[in-house]
Design a protein around this nucleic acid. Structure first.
Length: 582
RNA sequence: GCGCCUGUAGCUUAAUUGGAUAGAGCAAUAGACUACGGAUCUAUAGGUUGAAGGUUCGACUCCUUUCAGGCGUGCCA
């Protein structure tokens, strides 16, 4: 079923690698750089790495190697090879190279760039995970975006991906909500605007409990104790409490659905924490059997991790017998192992939980749950003036509002275009939502981001509308040309500088996908796509396509088609849609 | 106090994992052919990579110290 995807760029690098291995006798050669179109060389190798073991000046090494290669002769995809300083530089026969790259595309079409590295392997990605009965705020945007994009990238890299939305639908927070609801709640008011009203109740609980100032330690707070008691009742299956919980869960899910629809995000699974309610005993048993479970003087059950350099123990059970986050997560690992036997479980969760995941992962190892868990941390989104978002304090920005605003802004830009009402809305949707996603995904995920309306909704320069726009222009050319999909490349003609540049860039797509997938960094793809789009725009402005003569015209149409296919695929890996007109 | 993360141009940021001259966008300034679609393109200006040492052929990247900010540090998630 699997055929190996071999890309021209890889073949070229492998050839260099085998030449070097043969000459030096070193089997594992690292450090070869593939930089097609660079004036210094298309494939470049710094010989400095050999200097120590060979005890020679790198410049001498590179010169000697160069001489030997000259005697031996090179594969005819190369045109030249020379030594400059300590570098050994190879040059490609560009006509042959470009023609091979085009034929990669012709073979693979919209699969161009995909990999087979993940075939037969499963990865579970735990992401988004909003809390039920709380608003879907911009704070959840990053996990949702990054997780969704990673699942697409890994799928493109060949993995079987299970995206699991680990809903926060269990825990003490429900005790708080139920307390607030029973004391101050009015079902009629809630039905009208459920999420906002539940938020009000949640905030009121923290105000009344005095938890919003730092003076009251949480442990001896009367309201907190009552809340914990309600959660305990929920966990014990009290019918009345369960009924309220179900109702809150339902109205929340309806609300989340709206946001997921707008974002065009979907999950393979939406198990949620409550799913593990009846599966937690086993975890405690395993911990018990392994002699890891301790009970402290208050009756709290925990696993100590001091020996492993983690001074904070992982708590599995509260003194009242109720479960904690960790208990449910460990059950989750066990369940996932049994159900999918994944290669890895990725947790796309904010960096503020780094310590927790260190504990969790270590505990999972000790318990022998057998999955490779990775915390994909990302920086917090904060409000520049006030700092952290806080649901407790009611300091939230609703994601739905941000998304609507983005769509409105995009809509204004095409208002006077000659599109149907429906079309306008569709375009505004793609552009507006795309801008928000791209803004998030185009930067390294570990940095803290300040929430900024203008930045988030930016539509020019390095932004998704720029990429989407270049796609529409490419498609417009193909429409006008009545391009029939004839992909016979004429390799006898000389290419313009911009054409070469574009092809060189396109030849790197799969390796960009690769490094993005192994590092779990969507921004690598985003930034590469931007460079690609610039190359195309430059080609588009400097080279006539439609009015050129054959066979130039045919080649240029293929290039345009090639580009439009890659940019579309690439954007889809970020969860961004394209439109043929905009 | 301790631990983790971050610090690059006025602002937002990239740098192929230690490689050749630190690359972009925004904002600023000066320009562009009736334009295969101007949400575009070209150019100029803007940098002691927070600071100081160290490691080496070579450092934004690694080590030490230090400054600044963020996050976390037992019954929230």
């Amino acid at each position: 079923m699997s055929f190996e995807k071999k890309y021209t760029a890889d073949i070229v690098v492998e050839k260099v690698k085998s030449i070097l291995s043969e000459l030096t006798g070193i089997s594992d050669i690292n450090g070869i750089k593939f930089t097609p179109g660079d004036e210094k060389g298309d494939v470049v190798f710094p010989c400095f790495v050999f200097a120590k073991s060979m005890k020679k000046n790198p410049a001498v090494i590179s010169a000697e190697l160069s001489e030997k290669i000259k005697e031996k002769g090179l594969d005819d995809i190369f045109s030249e090879q020379k030594s400059t300083g300590g570098y050994l530089n190879f040059f490609l026969d560009m006509k042959k190279f470009h023609s091979a790259v085009v034929s990669d595309f012709v073979k693979l079409q919209d699969k161009y760039g995909s990999l087979s590295k993940g075939e037969g392997k499963t990865i579970v990605i735990d992401y988004s995970s909003p809390n039920i009965a709380k608003p879907f705020s911009v704070g959840h945007l990053r996990s949702t975006n990054i997780g969704s994009s990673l699942s697409k990238i890994l799928r493109f890299a060949g993995y079987n991906v299970i995206g699991d939305n680990h809903l926060g639908d269990w825990g003490t927070q429900f005790g708080k909500l139920i307390y607030a609801y029973k004391n101050w709640g009015d079902p009629k008011v809630i039905e009208k605007d459920p999420i906002k009203e539940l938020l009000n109740l949640y905030v009121r609980f923290h105000e009344e409990a005095g938890l919003n100032s730092d003076e009251h330690p949480e442990e001896d707070n009367e309201l907190e104790d009552k809340a914990r008691a309600y959660f305990k009742q929920l966990e014990d299956g009290d019918p009345e409490i369960t009924e309220i919980w179900k109702w809150m869960r339902d109205i929340s899910l309806k609300d989340f659905d709206k946001v997921y629809k707008m974002l065009d995000v979907s999950f393979e699974e939406m198990l949620g924490e409550s799913f593990y309610n009846d599966k937690m005993e086993e975890i405690k048993q395993i911990a018990e059997e392994k002699g890891l479970l301790e009970t402290d003087e208050d009756g709290v059950k925990l696993i100590r991790l001091d020996k492993f350099g983690i001074s904070t123990p992982l708590l599995l059970q509260k003194k009242d017998g109720a479960s904690l986050y960790a208990t449910r997560d460990l059950s989750g690992i066990l369940y996932r192992k049994r159900t999918w036997n994944p290669e890895a479980i990725l947790y796309v969760v904010g960096e503020e939980q780094t310590l927790y995941f260190k504990q969790l992962i270590k505990a999972s190892e000790l318990l022998g749950l057998g999955s490779n868990c990775v915390h994909i941390a990302f920086g917090l989104m904060i409000l520049p003036a006030e700092g952290k978002f806080s649901t407790r304090k009611g300091r939230v920005i609703f994601l739905e509002d941000v998304l609507k605003d983005a769509v409105d802004r995009a809509r204004k830009m095409i208002e006077d275009r000659d599109f149907s009402e429906e079309k306008k809305q569709e375009i505004a949707q793609k552009v507006g939502i795309g801008a928000v996603k791209y803004n998030d995904l185009s930067q390294n995920r570990v940095k803290t981001v300040g929430f900024d309306w203008d930045k988030m909704l930016s539509m020019d320069g390095n932004s998704s509308p720029y990429l989407q726009y270049s796609y529409s222009r490419a498609k417009a050319v193909l429409r006008k040309a009545e391009y029939n999909g004839d992909r016979t490349w004429n390799d006898s003609v000389e290419l313009e500088k911009d054409e070469k540049q574009l092809l060189n860039r396109l030849s790197q797509f799969h390796s960009i996908v690769e490094s993005s997938a192994v590092q779990y960094f969507p921004h690598i793809i985003a930034n590469w796509l931007y460079e690609l789009a610039r190359d195309f725009t430059s080609f588009y402005t400097n080279v006539r396509i439609l009015s050129s003569e054959e066979p130039y015209r045919q080649n240029r149409l293929i290039l345009t088609d090639f580009y439009s296919s890659v940019i579309k695929t690439g954007l889809s890996l970020l969860g961004i849609e394209t439109s043929e007109e905009m």
